[in-house]
Design a protein around this nucleic acid. Structure first.
Lengths: 208, 208, 208, 208
DNA sequence: GTCTAATCGAGACGGTACGTCGGGTCTTTGA
DNA sequence: TCAAAGACCCGACGTACCGTCTCGATTAGAC
């Protein structure tokens, strides 16, 4: 949320930040991102729709990208609870991936994602922020699934987990970027795991 | 390319399109894409640098995105010759992937890619164009490698080649989007193939 | 008409100038001047409507203003025959003025006039051309009427004919510029002559 | 002036219009009208010279013509104080006319006038505005002189004052439009009054 | 209760780029 | 050589947003 202040005790003087304003801005952002092409999502339109002065936006978010990222992570990304782990690590993995794919494919979410991806191309710094808020969260979910598999003795320890995670998520991003349509999210997840399983399951030889 | 094929014989009336102008525009585009952030690559700057009227750009390319795509595909993507196939399909695959990764990571190429990715997020139609010119070319290279492997009896036939290609390229795009750094392109390619090999090589069981 | 050539005998080499083209250009000019606001009468539209290359216009007329003036004088101004003189010089004068006013007020003529007036404000040289083709012609008509009156002994000789002509025509131009509406052209002419008559008729004292 | 009167009391919300900006725009307009041909007086140049955004011009003046008219009336036309009336109405009239002619002939004023005349030809609505701001002001000055003459018993009451005013001002406009040069403004005024006097003075018969 | 300080809506401001229009010049083919 | 077609360089158009600024109005705690 950018400014945190807090510092306990002493309140800053002056009129305090209005929550209603913040909410109005974020709501307007969501509506616009959902209904317009991204270049048409302008600060001016957001301010107009939120019935807010432009300054009130600039006061709290340095760029439009940050506003969208903030809005998006707050309202969307954190909404997905972790998978409940079972005795079958591969089934867990598959379920986690499928669920993630479905979530990211929801119309509003994917519209927001496109906005963020576009912005991230311009600016390395924002790319880093995006990584922190979007990619890393998912990587940790995957690692958790891997560790569970290792603990169960179903997944080998000597694997390049980075490359593995890249491939799993990359499959999603590739489809996302290229606009390719695939049978279904569940099928997609199933086939990905099927292809990877022999390479990571214990007991399978890994000759090269 | 916006060229309308000419239908042989009869030339269109009027002064013909100037090659010099077209080249100047594309050269200026390359230079600017290489030296500026994408939002700062404006039609106006391109025209100025190419010493060309803006109209001469708009006459031939409907949007900046189309110009960049055209320029990019013409000067870059088609420059990569196909891999020479050997008796080891997996070595071929690895080499093809590694070479592709290296090519796409070259500073100027990746700057252009970022521009195209950003534009593609705005406009589904442009996403399709981008697919035609960038993704499909690579998919065919991969398919060629797969078919070779099948012919050699080294790769199984009952595989979801789409999901496979998505994972391989997706790994690259994931790294590209997230800004993650990986040891080296060669290593990256090697580990990806290592992880996938058991799942696609003949003779390996695919129990699930 | 700008280029005259003629020089008898020897014809210039090459394809001769096409009369059809000239006519088409002028016709298109008249139509456009009559139907559009003057700034919207562009060389490009004239060429398009005449189905003529722009160059064919520029070849014969240096500026749009010259084209309009040429067209206007050819098709309009020279169309007014001289007044038949009677034994009453003031009646002749009144008739001449009234007829002129009526002619200049015709919708198409006045649209053309406005174009010419506008152009003339920009460029002193064109102002001179306009004077030659529009104002001088009328001044001579007036002088002819004055001389007739003098010959008849009805108009005094010791008058500032320039100032007089300026006032008579000026009245028209004032009305034209200001957009003022007056009862009728005939009435207008009559009242103007009535006001001036005592000052110019013989036998009237001119005390100052 | 585009100012909306404010209706007293309550100020409009938002940042108020900047006087400095407005002044800078008008100053730049005057300078440019004085130094360039009218078609070269572009909004873009005015904005550049005034160091002002184009929008700040368009915000307050719908067209270039309105800006020029505003500037012109504000800085020029209202600058001329009324004539002091004496016991000789014709001398007053002559002085008023001469002074007006001289004023309108001043280089900067006449450059501005040409701009306004040109614009007025395009657009009937602007013609009306011009009438309100330029012609009417003068007409009232003349009427005042006439009324004074009537009160003094020097000018007849049964006269077509419209036609009369048209002739007097028309003489000026004719000279202005045609580019004709006359001895001097004072002489011009004198001869005009001399020609008209017998037609309007009391005691003179008006036989027709 | 003022006083001080920050926020809020509103919208003017100096800028930059947009995509379009027209100007006047040029370069083709064909008559 | 002229003519039609139309590409070319150029400059201005009027608009949209940018991010900053200046207003009056408001909303707190500090005095």
């Amino acid at each position: 949320m950018t400014s945190e202040a807090a510092t306990v005790g002493k309140r800053a003087p002056g009129r305090p930040r209005s929550d209603a304003t913040q909410r109005a801005i974020m709501d307007a952002t969501i509506e616009l991102v959902g209904s317009e092409n991204y270049p048409d999502v302008t600060i001016e339109k957001i301010a107009a729709r939120a019935k807010v002065g432009k300054q009130s936006i600039y006061r709290w978010w340095p760029t439009k990208a940050d506003l969208v990222l903030d809005t998006f992570t707050l309202h969307s990304l954190k909404a997905m609870p972790p998978v409940i782990q079972t005795a079958d690590a591969f089934a867990d993995l598959e379920q986690d991936i499928a669920r993630h794919f479905t979530f990211m494919s929801a119309p509003l979410v994917s519209k927001g994602l496109r906005s963020l991806i576009a912005e991230a191309q311009y600016d390395p710094e924002f790319r880093r922020k995006l990584y922190e808020n979007v990619h890393r969260v998912r990587c940790e979910a995957l690692r958790r699934a891997f560790r569970h598999g290792i603990a169960l003795g179903q997944i080998r320890e000597d694997i390049d987990f980075d490359a593995l995670a890249h491939m799993i998520h990359g499959a999603f991003w590739y489809r996302f970027l290229s606009g390719t349509v695939y049978k279904s999210d569940a099928e997609y997840a199933k086939n990905i795991v099927a292809l990877l399983r022999p390479g990571i399951a214990t007991g399978s030889a890994n000759h090269h």
